[in-house]
Protein backbone atom coordinates (compact mmCIF):
# COMPACT_ATOMS: atom_id res chain seq x y z
CA UNK A 1 0.00 0.00 0.00
CA UNK A 2 1.27 3.41 -0.86
CA UNK A 3 0.88 5.73 2.08
CA UNK A 4 2.48 8.62 3.93
CA UNK A 5 3.01 8.15 7.64
CA UNK A 6 2.46 11.51 9.33
CA UNK A 7 3.91 11.71 12.83
CA UNK A 8 1.87 14.25 14.80
CA UNK A 9 3.48 16.97 16.87
CA UNK A 10 1.50 17.53 20.06
CA UNK A 11 2.59 19.60 23.02
CA UNK A 12 0.78 20.05 26.30
CA UNK A 13 -2.53 18.92 24.93
CA UNK A 14 -2.33 20.96 21.73
CA UNK A 15 -2.25 19.48 18.23
CA UNK A 16 0.24 21.92 16.69
CA UNK A 17 -0.92 23.86 13.65
CA UNK A 18 2.36 23.01 11.92
CA UNK A 19 1.00 19.49 11.41
CA UNK A 20 -1.13 20.92 8.59
CA UNK A 21 2.03 21.28 6.52
CA UNK A 22 2.74 17.56 6.94
CA UNK A 23 -0.78 16.77 5.73
CA UNK A 24 -0.36 19.23 2.87
CA UNK A 25 2.88 17.71 1.63
CA UNK A 26 1.42 14.19 1.82
CA UNK A 27 -1.65 15.31 -0.11
CA UNK A 28 0.50 16.94 -2.78
CA UNK A 29 2.39 13.67 -3.14
CA UNK A 30 -0.98 11.97 -3.65
CA UNK A 31 -0.53 9.56 -0.79
CA UNK A 32 -3.02 7.93 1.46
CA UNK A 33 -2.42 9.42 4.90
CA UNK A 34 -1.88 7.44 8.07
CA UNK A 35 -1.59 9.75 11.06
CA UNK A 36 0.02 8.51 14.25
CA UNK A 37 -0.84 10.49 17.38
CA UNK A 38 -0.99 9.90 21.13
CA UNK A 39 -4.43 8.89 22.33
CA UNK A 40 -5.73 12.00 24.04
CA UNK A 41 -8.24 14.84 23.84
CA UNK A 42 -6.46 16.60 20.98
CA UNK A 43 -8.66 18.68 18.79
CA UNK A 44 -7.90 18.62 15.07
CA UNK A 45 -9.61 17.98 11.77
CA UNK A 46 -9.69 14.18 11.66
CA UNK A 47 -10.98 14.35 8.08
CA UNK A 48 -7.45 15.18 6.88
CA UNK A 49 -6.31 11.59 7.43
CA UNK A 50 -7.43 8.28 5.95
CA UNK A 51 -6.39 6.37 9.02
CA UNK A 52 -5.61 7.58 12.52
CA UNK A 53 -3.47 5.37 14.69
CA UNK A 54 -3.87 6.37 18.33
CA UNK A 55 -1.08 5.36 20.65
CA UNK A 56 -1.96 4.62 24.24
CA UNK A 57 0.90 6.61 25.70
CA UNK A 58 1.36 10.13 26.98
CA UNK A 59 2.81 12.79 24.69
CA UNK A 60 6.09 12.85 26.61
CA UNK A 61 6.55 9.17 25.85
CA UNK A 62 5.41 9.65 22.26
CA UNK A 63 7.72 12.58 21.45
CA UNK A 64 10.82 10.72 22.62
CA UNK A 65 12.82 9.50 19.60
CA UNK A 66 13.87 6.36 21.46
CA UNK A 67 10.21 5.39 21.83
CA UNK A 68 9.03 6.69 18.50
CA UNK A 69 11.06 4.08 16.62
CA UNK A 70 9.09 1.36 18.41
CA UNK A 71 5.82 3.12 17.60
CA UNK A 72 6.72 3.44 13.92
CA UNK A 73 7.75 -0.19 13.82
CA UNK A 74 4.30 -1.12 15.18
CA UNK A 75 2.53 1.05 12.60
CA UNK A 76 4.49 -0.61 9.80
CA UNK A 77 3.76 -4.07 11.15
CA UNK A 78 1.08 -5.62 9.01
CA UNK A 79 0.68 -2.45 6.99
CA UNK A 80 4.04 -2.56 5.23
CA UNK A 81 6.45 0.29 4.77
CA UNK A 82 5.13 3.75 3.90
CA UNK A 83 6.53 5.78 1.01
CA UNK A 84 7.49 8.56 3.35
CA UNK A 85 7.52 9.37 7.04
CA UNK A 86 6.67 13.02 7.58
CA UNK A 87 7.55 15.19 10.58
CA UNK A 88 7.23 18.89 11.32
CA UNK A 89 10.53 20.81 11.17
CA UNK A 90 10.41 21.71 14.85
CA UNK A 91 12.06 20.87 18.14
CA UNK A 92 10.44 17.45 18.02
CA UNK A 93 10.65 16.63 14.29
CA UNK A 94 14.22 17.89 13.97
CA UNK A 95 15.11 15.58 16.83
CA UNK A 96 13.21 12.46 15.86
CA UNK A 97 13.47 12.35 12.06
CA UNK A 98 17.25 11.77 11.89
CA UNK A 99 17.05 9.21 14.68
CA UNK A 100 14.28 7.33 12.88
CA UNK A 101 16.27 7.48 9.61
CA UNK A 102 19.39 6.21 11.38
CA UNK A 103 17.51 3.38 13.07
CA UNK A 104 15.81 2.04 9.96
CA UNK A 105 18.57 2.98 7.50
CA UNK A 106 16.46 5.45 5.53
CA UNK A 107 17.28 8.55 3.50
CA UNK A 108 16.44 11.82 5.25
CA UNK A 109 15.87 15.35 3.96
CA UNK A 110 15.06 18.02 6.54
CA UNK A 111 13.42 21.44 6.24
CA UNK A 112 11.60 20.62 2.99
CA UNK A 113 9.77 23.72 1.78
CA UNK A 114 8.79 22.85 -1.81
CA UNK A 115 8.43 19.84 -4.07
CA UNK A 116 8.18 18.99 -7.72
CA UNK A 117 6.07 15.88 -7.77
CA UNK A 118 6.49 15.05 -11.45
CA UNK A 119 10.24 15.00 -11.16
CA UNK A 120 10.21 13.45 -7.70
CA UNK A 121 12.37 16.15 -6.15
CA UNK A 122 12.34 18.01 -2.86
CA UNK A 123 13.71 21.45 -2.20
CA UNK A 124 15.43 22.48 0.98
CA UNK A 125 17.07 25.70 2.02
CA UNK A 126 20.81 26.29 2.26
CA UNK A 127 22.63 29.30 3.63
CA UNK A 128 19.54 30.71 5.34
CA UNK A 129 17.44 30.66 2.17
CA UNK A 130 20.01 32.15 -0.18
CA UNK A 131 20.18 28.92 -2.16
CA UNK A 132 17.88 25.93 -2.46
CA UNK A 133 19.12 22.39 -2.99
CA UNK A 134 17.10 20.11 -5.22
CA UNK A 135 17.16 16.56 -3.88
CA UNK A 136 16.27 13.12 -5.12
CA UNK A 137 16.25 10.10 -2.90
CA UNK A 138 18.33 7.41 -4.51
CA UNK A 139 18.07 4.86 -1.73
CA UNK A 140 15.05 2.70 -1.14
CA UNK A 141 12.32 4.50 0.72
CA UNK A 142 10.59 5.34 2.80
CA UNK A 143 12.00 8.84 2.75
CA UNK A 144 12.09 10.59 6.07
CA UNK A 145 11.14 14.25 5.72
CA UNK A 146 10.72 17.22 8.00
CA UNK A 147 8.51 19.97 6.64
CA UNK A 148 8.96 23.71 7.09
CA UNK A 149 5.94 25.29 8.72
CA UNK A 150 3.80 27.39 6.43
CA UNK A 151 5.03 25.68 3.26
CA UNK A 152 2.25 23.25 2.44
CA UNK A 153 -0.66 23.93 4.79
CA UNK A 154 -2.92 25.21 2.03
CA UNK A 155 -2.64 21.86 0.26
CA UNK A 156 -4.05 19.91 3.22
CA UNK A 157 -7.24 18.37 1.83
CA UNK A 158 -10.18 16.76 3.56
CA UNK A 159 -10.97 13.16 2.65
CA UNK A 160 -14.37 12.01 1.42
CA UNK A 161 -14.75 9.48 4.20
CA UNK A 162 -14.25 9.73 7.92
CA UNK A 163 -10.90 8.38 9.06
CA UNK A 164 -10.55 4.82 10.22
CA UNK A 165 -9.30 4.71 13.81
CA UNK A 166 -6.87 2.11 15.10
CA UNK A 167 -4.99 1.76 18.36
CA UNK A 168 -1.51 0.85 19.48
CA UNK A 169 -1.97 -0.59 22.93
CA UNK A 170 1.47 -0.13 24.40
CA UNK A 171 4.94 1.25 23.79
CA UNK A 172 8.27 -0.19 24.88
CA UNK A 173 9.31 3.00 26.71
CA UNK A 174 13.05 3.49 27.03
CA UNK A 175 14.56 4.11 30.46
CA UNK A 176 17.63 5.66 28.87
CA UNK A 177 15.92 8.93 28.17
CA UNK A 178 13.10 10.00 30.42
CA UNK A 179 10.99 13.17 30.45
CA UNK A 180 11.01 14.87 33.85
CA UNK A 181 9.06 18.12 33.55
CA UNK A 182 8.30 21.19 31.48
CA UNK A 183 10.13 24.37 32.42
CA UNK A 184 8.42 27.67 31.64
CA UNK A 185 10.08 30.93 30.80
CA UNK A 186 10.15 33.49 33.57
CA UNK A 187 7.57 36.23 33.28
CA UNK A 188 8.94 39.72 32.77
CA UNK A 189 7.47 43.18 32.88
CA UNK A 190 7.87 43.81 29.17
CA UNK A 191 5.73 41.70 26.89
CA UNK A 192 6.82 42.20 23.28
CA UNK A 193 3.71 40.39 22.04
CA UNK A 194 1.63 43.35 23.27
CA UNK A 195 3.71 46.06 21.56
CA UNK A 196 2.23 47.93 18.59
CA UNK A 197 5.62 48.93 17.28
CA UNK A 198 8.72 46.73 17.56
CA UNK A 199 12.22 47.79 16.67
CA UNK A 200 14.09 44.54 16.30
CA UNK A 201 17.86 44.19 15.96
CA UNK A 202 19.83 41.22 14.65
CA UNK A 203 23.42 40.06 14.54
CA UNK A 204 24.13 42.98 12.22
CA UNK A 205 24.08 45.25 15.28
CA UNK A 206 27.69 44.14 15.67
CA UNK A 207 28.44 44.31 19.36
CA UNK A 208 26.96 44.80 22.76
CA UNK A 209 27.96 48.45 23.06
CA UNK A 210 25.61 49.36 20.23
CA UNK A 211 22.53 48.05 22.06
CA UNK A 212 21.97 51.14 24.24
CA UNK A 213 21.99 53.34 21.14
CA UNK A 214 19.13 51.29 19.71
CA UNK A 215 17.33 51.39 23.04
CA UNK A 216 17.58 55.14 22.77
CA UNK A 217 16.24 55.12 19.21
CA UNK A 218 13.39 52.85 20.30
CA UNK A 219 12.64 55.32 23.10
CA UNK A 220 12.51 58.24 20.70
CA UNK A 221 10.20 56.31 18.36
CA UNK A 222 8.07 55.02 21.25
CA UNK A 223 8.87 51.53 20.04
CA UNK A 224 9.77 48.44 22.05
CA UNK A 225 13.17 46.87 21.43
CA UNK A 226 13.32 43.18 20.50
CA UNK A 227 15.87 40.99 18.77
CA UNK A 228 16.72 37.92 16.74
CA UNK A 229 18.15 34.84 18.35
CA UNK A 230 21.88 35.58 18.07
CA UNK A 231 21.37 38.83 19.99
CA UNK A 232 19.65 36.92 22.78
CA UNK A 233 22.18 34.05 22.65
CA UNK A 234 24.95 36.54 23.27
CA UNK A 235 22.91 37.95 26.15
CA UNK A 236 22.79 41.42 24.65
CA UNK A 237 19.02 41.40 25.21
CA UNK A 238 17.04 39.22 27.63
CA UNK A 239 15.34 36.04 26.34
CA UNK A 240 11.74 37.34 26.61
CA UNK A 241 12.70 39.87 23.91
CA UNK A 242 13.42 37.17 21.32
CA UNK A 243 11.25 37.01 18.22
CA UNK A 244 10.92 33.69 16.42
CA UNK A 245 9.92 30.05 16.77
CA UNK A 246 11.93 29.51 19.93
CA UNK A 247 11.01 32.94 21.23
CA UNK A 248 7.83 34.97 20.82
CA UNK A 249 5.38 35.21 17.95
CA UNK A 250 4.52 38.87 17.44
CA UNK A 251 2.00 40.74 15.30
CA UNK A 252 2.65 44.44 15.84
CA UNK A 253 1.35 47.19 13.57
CA UNK A 254 4.93 47.87 12.54
CA UNK A 255 7.91 45.53 12.75
CA UNK A 256 11.13 47.38 11.97
CA UNK A 257 13.94 44.83 11.48
CA UNK A 258 17.50 46.11 11.44
CA UNK A 259 20.44 43.80 10.65
CA UNK A 260 18.30 40.65 10.55
CA UNK A 261 18.83 38.26 7.61
CA UNK A 262 15.42 36.57 7.67
CA UNK A 263 15.97 32.93 8.63
CA UNK A 264 12.67 31.05 8.62
CA UNK A 265 12.75 30.56 12.39
CA UNK A 266 12.74 34.34 12.69
CA UNK A 267 10.23 34.98 9.91
CA UNK A 268 7.79 32.49 11.47
CA UNK A 269 7.66 34.71 14.54
CA UNK A 270 6.88 38.04 12.82
CA UNK A 271 5.46 37.41 9.34
CA UNK A 272 1.91 38.31 10.36
CA UNK A 273 2.86 41.84 11.40
CA UNK A 274 0.72 44.48 9.63
CA UNK A 275 3.75 46.23 8.21
CA UNK A 276 7.31 44.90 8.04
CA UNK A 277 10.18 47.25 7.31
CA UNK A 278 13.64 45.74 6.81
CA UNK A 279 16.96 47.54 6.89
CA UNK A 280 19.92 45.46 5.80
CA UNK A 281 23.15 46.17 3.99
CA UNK A 282 22.89 42.98 1.93
CA UNK A 283 20.52 43.46 -1.02
CA UNK A 284 20.14 39.66 -1.19
CA UNK A 285 19.02 39.24 2.41
CA UNK A 286 15.98 36.92 2.42
CA UNK A 287 14.10 39.26 4.77
CA UNK A 288 13.40 41.58 1.84
CA UNK A 289 11.20 38.81 0.43
CA UNK A 290 8.87 39.13 3.41
CA UNK A 291 9.06 42.84 4.12
CA UNK A 292 6.63 45.45 2.82
CA UNK A 293 9.31 48.12 2.74
CA UNK A 294 13.05 47.71 2.46
CA UNK A 295 16.14 49.84 2.80
CA UNK A 296 19.58 48.68 1.67
CA UNK A 297 21.85 50.54 4.05
CA UNK A 298 24.14 50.36 7.04
CA UNK A 299 21.77 50.18 10.01
CA UNK A 300 24.04 52.37 12.12
CA UNK A 301 23.88 55.17 9.59
CA UNK A 302 20.09 54.92 9.48
CA UNK A 303 20.03 54.99 13.28
CA UNK A 304 22.15 58.14 13.41
CA UNK A 305 20.14 59.90 10.75
CA UNK A 306 16.82 58.99 12.35
CA UNK A 307 18.01 60.24 15.71
CA UNK A 308 19.11 63.54 14.19
CA UNK A 309 15.77 63.97 12.48
CA UNK A 310 13.71 63.07 15.53
CA UNK A 311 15.67 65.42 17.78
CA UNK A 312 15.04 68.42 15.58
Amino acid sequence: MSYALVVAEVRRGVFEERNLDSFGLSSLLGKEIVLVVPDGPYSFNERLADTIVKVKAGEEVFLNPLNLVDIIEQVMNGRGKPDCIVFTHSSSGMESAPYVAGTFGLPVVTDVSAINKDEGVFYKSYYSDKIFGEFKCTGQGPWVLTVRSGSFKDAAAEKADAAKVEYIEGVAASDKRVFLEYVEEEKTEIDITKAEFLLSVGRGVGNKDEIPTYEELAGMLKATLSGSRPVIDKMWLPKPRQVGTSGKTVKPKVYLAMGISGAFQHIAGMKDSDCIIAINKDAGAPIFQYAHFGVIADMHKVRDKLKDMLKS
Binding site: S125, F132, E134, K136, F288, Q289, H292, G294, I296
Partner: peptide, 26 residues
Protein backbone atom coordinates in the same frame (compact mmCIF):
# COMPACT_ATOMS: atom_id res chain seq x y z
CA UNK B 1 20.88 7.73 -0.13
CA UNK B 2 20.01 11.16 -1.33
CA UNK B 3 21.34 12.89 -4.35
CA UNK B 4 21.56 16.59 -5.02
CA UNK B 5 20.21 17.10 -8.45
CA UNK B 6 21.23 20.73 -8.59
CA UNK B 7 21.39 24.04 -6.81
CA UNK B 8 18.78 26.64 -7.61
CA UNK B 9 17.89 30.15 -6.48
CA UNK B 10 14.84 30.17 -4.23
CA UNK B 11 11.56 31.24 -5.78
CA UNK B 12 11.09 35.01 -5.53
CA UNK B 13 8.08 36.43 -3.79
CA UNK B 14 6.61 39.83 -4.50
CA UNK B 15 9.18 41.32 -2.20
CA UNK B 16 9.53 44.63 -0.47
CA UNK B 17 9.06 48.06 -1.95
CA UNK B 18 12.58 49.44 -1.73
CA UNK B 19 13.12 52.95 -0.43
CA UNK B 20 16.05 54.40 -2.29
CA UNK B 21 17.75 57.75 -2.59
CA UNK B 22 19.84 59.82 -0.22
CA UNK B 23 19.86 58.69 3.40
CA UNK B 24 18.03 61.89 4.34
CA UNK B 25 15.18 61.18 1.98
CA UNK B 26 15.05 57.50 2.95
Amino acid sequence: MIDTVKWVYPPRKKGAMMLSGELDEV
